[in-house]
Computed example of a mutant assay.
Amino acid sequence: MTTVEHILDVKGRGVFSVDVDAMVLDALKLMAEADVGSVMVMDGERIAGIFTERQYARRVFLLGRASPVTPVREVMETDVICVRPEKSAEDCMALMSEKRLRHLPVVKDGELLGLVSIGDLLKSAIADREFHIDQLVEYVGH
């Protein structure tokens, strides 16, 4: 069973973030430069929220708000669902499906260790399936 910690070991633990006082435009620029769908919103070392493409579409664009003058703190998701590093990839996929999430921060003892996306979890699931198939082929071939 693959854990979130293993996924972070493979993909890296870097997290893109903006300060809680940043403007939406700053967060969007960072997301575009990094080619990611979300950024963590931090208040110092503390997670204040998460800002995603979904929040932008629903809480900024569709409401006619201006990105250069709208603070991220006004439109971010503050009810951030986090997981511990020992959580299984399968459990995370179920949680993401149930809660309709695409990104899960990984936290241990209050420290942000990384972020996994649904894409990261799918890649891991595919790699696990390929490994098992290869093992079965090897076993049957002997």
Rank of each mutant, 00 (worst) to 15 (best):
D9N: 14
V10E: 14
S17W: 12
V18M: 04
D19G: 02
V20Q: 01
V24K: 03
L25R: 15
D26A: 13
L28R: 09
L28M: 11
K29C: 12
K29E: 15
L30R: 04
M31T: 07
D35I: 10
V36G: 06
G37F: 11
G37P: 08
S38N: 04
V39A: 02
V39P: 07
M42G: 01
D43P: 11
E45V: 07
R46K: 15
I47K: 04
G49V: 07
T52K: 02
E53Q: 07
E53F: 03
A57H: 04
R58M: 06
R59F: 09
F61E: 14
F61V: 13
A66L: 14
S67N: 03
P68S: 11
T70G: 09
T70L: 10
T70Q: 09
T70K: 05
E74H: 03
E74A: 12
M76E: 04
E77D: 11
D79N: 14
V80Q: 07
I81C: 05
R84A: 15
R84T: 15
E86P: 04
K87R: 15
S88T: 15
S88A: 12
A89D: 04
A89S: 11
C92E: 10
C92F: 09
A94D: 13
R100H: 15
V106W: 03
V107R: 11
K108H: 12
K108A: 12
G110W: 07
K123Q: 10
K123C: 05
S124G: 15
A127S: 11
D128G: 09
R129I: 01
F131Q: 14
